[in-house]
């Protein structure tokens, strides 16, 4: 993102607001069982907080919060968490993605609840990393990018 001038108000306010957006994104992911939310929405909020800092401070300073090279590995890690949850159920005797067989807890419905949480974490990680990576890739090679 091209910056023409240093505006201290924008820098300060965006730096103050970004951690709260990130915290709210984590809340949306982890409280998705009981309120509107889930991995997709929370991942988008996390990506919004990262991109807000890149927009306001410039991409160079934004790198120190979330380096560019982390994008693709984190996205792959998120998808691997999803596949791994499914494979764990398969190895432990159930069908693929049947969370009732993963011993998170004693009761079958609670096991399913924990399985859903694990899957949502994977989805949130992948969505956040991919959105930030697409933003970085589109700005690749631009001046002050």
């Amino acid at each position: 993102m091209r910056r023409n001038e240093n505006n201290p108000i924008i820098d300060l306010i965006s730096s103050l607001v970004a951690p709260f957006i990130m915290l709210f994104g984590l809340y949306v992911i982890f409280h998705g069982h009981y309120s509107p939310g889930g991995g997709f929405q929370g991942g988008t909020l996390l990506a919004a907080s990262v991109i807000l800092l890149r927009l306001s401070l410039g991409s160079e300073l934004g790198q120190s919060q979330f380096p560019r090279r982390l994008g693709t590995p984190l996205a792959s890690l998120g998808v691997l968490i999803y596949y791994g949850t499914g494979l764990a159920a398969l190895i432990l005797g159930g069908a693929f993605l049947n969370y009732g067989f993963i011993p998170f807890s004693a009761l079958a419905p609670l096991r399913r609840s924990w399985g859903i949480l694990s899957v949502e974490i994977g989805v949130g990680l992948a969505v956040m990393a991919v959105l930030v990576a697409i933003y970085d890739d589109l700005l690749e090679g631009e001046p002050d990018a």
């Binding site: 889930g38 997709f40 991942g43 697409i134």
Partner: peptide
Amino acid sequence: MLTAIVVGVATSGVAFALII
């Protein structure tokens, strides 16, 4: 539709990459 929204954002990112 929840999944369709995020996939739409990702696919428009691909479209912009092709345009670049």
